[in-house]
Design a protein around this nucleic acid. Structure first.
Length: 422
RNA sequence: GGAGAGGUGGCUGAGCGGUCGAAAGCAACGGUUUGCUAAACCGUCGAGUGGGUUAUUACCUGCUCCCAGGGUUCGAAUCCCUGCCUCUCCGCCA
C-alpha cells in the first residue's frame, strides 16, 4: 500500500512511477475520495466536539439538580447527524482502502524501464554450462528412466501439475530442503520457523496477494482460509499489527513450506514435466529491516540465495527485473535463473525482492527507532531455493551417459552418502 | 463439539455509565549523583487521524481508539447482542 500522504502531496511523481509499470493506474479517484473524506471528518469532528461539551454539561446539571432537558435534546439531535455522516464516512473509507489496495508498489529509481521480460537486465552469469558427449535428456525423460518421478499417478490422485517423487527422488527432495535450511540457519543467520500453510484473508492482504490476485489462490470451501502460494505470506505476516524494537532489526527468518498456486493465467504453458506445477516445495528467506538498511539487506539476501546455487555447482545468472516485469508488491527485484541443460532453458529458482514499506503498511508492521519514533519497517524476501526447478537442474545437468545422476557433494551426507541417483 | 472464565498501553495489572486515554508497578528514554558499574532520586513515556503554526526538526488544537462489529443512552473501557481469540474442564482425535 502506498502512503496516502505522499499520493496527496506529490501525485505527479507517484503517477510517473506507477506509469513505469504500465497498466494505466490513475490516482484521480483516490484524490477525490480523500478530499471528500477529509471534509466529512472535519464536520463530524466538530459535531462530536459539540456533543462532548453538551454531554458534560448534562452531567454537571444533573449532579447539581438542575434541568438538562434542552441539552439532552440538542445532544440527541447532534448524535443523529453524526450517525449519518459516519455512515457516509465508512463508505468513503472503504472505497479509499480498496482503491489503495489495488495500487501496486512504485518501482525503485534504479529499476530499469521496460515493458516485460525482454527488457530485464542480466546482471551477471556465474558458472559454465555443462558439456556432454551425448545428447542430454530433459528431466522428464531422466526421471522416468530412474523411476524417481511419477506424474501419471499424481494426476490420478490430484490432477495435472502435481509432482510425485518416489524413492531416491523423494529422498533428494528431503535432502535439498534439509540442507538449505541448515545453510540458512547455520551459515546465513536466519531463524527457522515452521508455519501454517492455511491463512486468513487479512494475512493474504498483508503481503499483497489479496484483493487483486484471488484467482491465483486455492481457497477452502467451508472456511475462510486460503492455501499459501509462498512462505512469504505467513512469515511476513507474523508481525502484523506489531511495533518492533529497532535493536531487534534486522530480523531474519527462514521457513520451508509447500506452496500452492492455481496458475490460472498460465494454462497451457510449461505443460511438460514439472517446470510449472500447482504444488511445490520451497525454502524462503524473509527479512524485516529499517529503511536505511534495506538496500544492503536486499543484496545480502540475494547473495545468500546465490551461495546455495553455487554450492550445488549449478550455472546461473542474476537478472534485474525491469519496471514492467516486477511483481505487484516489489519495488526492486532480482530473479536468479539456473541453467537446465536437458531442456536448454534458464529456470527461475529464486526471486529476491525488496518491498520497501509497501507490505509493512498493509500488514501494519512498524518499529520504534532510537528517537522513539514509530516508523514502518521494510520487508524483503527471496527463495532460498524453490524446489522442483532446482531438482530439474540437478537431474538435467548432472545426468550421466548411463542414465544415472550425480549427486552434488553438499547433498551426499543427506542422501546416505550416495554419489549417484540410480 | 459441550460447559465455564477471560480479552485494557512494550509487559504486568486497576478501573462505581459522566471528572478515564485510562491508577499502580515493571521496562524504556532523559537528567542529577558517581572514578566506572550498580543503586537512589527527579523528569519523560501509547497509537491513529483532521486542522493550524512552523515548515530539516517540532509545537498547538480537535476527534477516534480499552479484541472486532452492532445496539441501548444526552453520554459506554464500564450495560446488551453477535463474532473472533486465549485459558480451564469434558468429549473426540493425529
Amino acid at each position: 500500500m502506498l502512503d496516502l500522504n505522499v499520493i496527496r502531496s506529490e501525485p505527479e511523481q507517484v503517477a510517473t512511477g506507477l506509469g513505469r509499470r504500465g497498466g494505466g493506474h490513475t490516482l484521480d479517484t483516490i484524490l477525490k475520495i480523500d478530499e471528500n473524506r477529509r471534509a466529512l471528518i472535519t464536520e463530524s469532528d466538530e459535531l462530536r466536539n459539540r456533543r462532548n461539551v453538551v454531554s458534560k454539561e448534562v452531567g454537571r446539571l444533573k449532579a447539581s439538580g438542575g434541568d438538562a432537558t434542552a441539552q439532552m435534546a440538542e445532544s440527541k439531535t447532534i448524535g443523529e447527524r453524526i450517525k449519518q455522516i459516519e455512515g457516509d464516512l465508512r463508505d468513503l473509507d472503504e472505497s479509499l482502502r480498496q482503491a489503495l489496495l489495488m495500487l501496486p508498489n512504485v518501482p525503485a529509481e534504479d529499476v530499469p524501464d521496460g515493458a516485460g521480460a525482454e527488457d530485464n537486465q542480466i546482471v551477471k552469469t556465474i558458472g559454465e554450462k555443462p558439456r556432454f558427449d551425448f545428447q542430454p535428456l530433459p528431466h522428464w525423460d531422466v526421471c522416468e528412466k530412474l523411476g524417481v518421478l511419477d506424474m501419471a499417478r499424481a494426476a490420478k490422485i490430484a490432477g495435472s501439475g502435481f509432482p510425485l517423487f518416489v524413492g531416491q527422488g523423494a529422498r533428494l527432495v528431503r535432502a535439498l530442503l534439509t540442507w538449505m535450511l541448515d545453510v540458512q540457519t547455520g551459515q546465513n543467520g536466519y531463524t527457522e520457523v515452521w508455519a501454517p500453510v492455511l491463512v486468513n484473508p487479512k494475512t493474504m492482504t498483508g503481503t499483497g496477494q489479496l484483493p487483486k490476485f484471488e484467482e491465483e489462490l486455492y481457497r477452502l470451501r467451508d472456511d475462510d482460509l486460503y492455501l499459501i502460494p509462498t512462505a512469504e505470506v505467513p512469515v511476513t505476516n507474523l508481525y502484523q499489527d506489531e511495533i518492533l524494537a529497532e535493536a531487534d532489526l534486522p530480523m531474519l527468518r527462514t521457513a520451508y513450506t509447500p506452496c500452492f498456486r492455481r496458475e490460472a493465467g498460465a494454462a497451457g504453458r510449461d505443460t511438460r514435466g514439472m517446470i510449472r506445477v500447482h504444488q511445490f516445495d520451497k525454502v524462503e528467506m524473509v527479512k524485516f529491516t529499517t529503511p536505511e538498511a534495506s538496500p544492503a539487506e536486499h543484496e545480502s539476501l540475494t547473495a545468500n540465495a546465490e551461495g546455495l546455487i553455487e554450492q550445488l555447482g549449478l550455472p546461473y545468472r542474476r537478472v534485474l527485473l525491469c519496471a514492467g516485469d516486477m511483481g505487484f508488491s516489489a519495488r526492486k527485484c532480482f530473479d536468479l535463473e539456473v541453467y537446465a541443460a536437458g531442456c536448454d532453458r534458464w529456470l527461475e529458482v529464486s526471486s529476491c525482492s525488496n518491498f520497501g514499506d509497501f507490505q509493512a503498511r498493509r500488514a501494519n508492521i512498524r518499529y520504534r527507532d532510537a528517537g522513539g519514533k514509530v516508523r514502518f519497517v521494510h520487508t524483503l524476501n527471496g527463495s532460498g531455493l524453490a524446489l522442483p526447478r532446482i531438482f530439474i537442474a540437478i537431474m538435467e545437468n548432472f545426468q550421466q551417459a548411463d542414465g544415472r545422476v550425480r549427486v552434488p557433494e553438499v547433498l551426499r551426507p543427506y542422501m546416505g552418502g550416495a554419489e549417484f541417483v540410480g
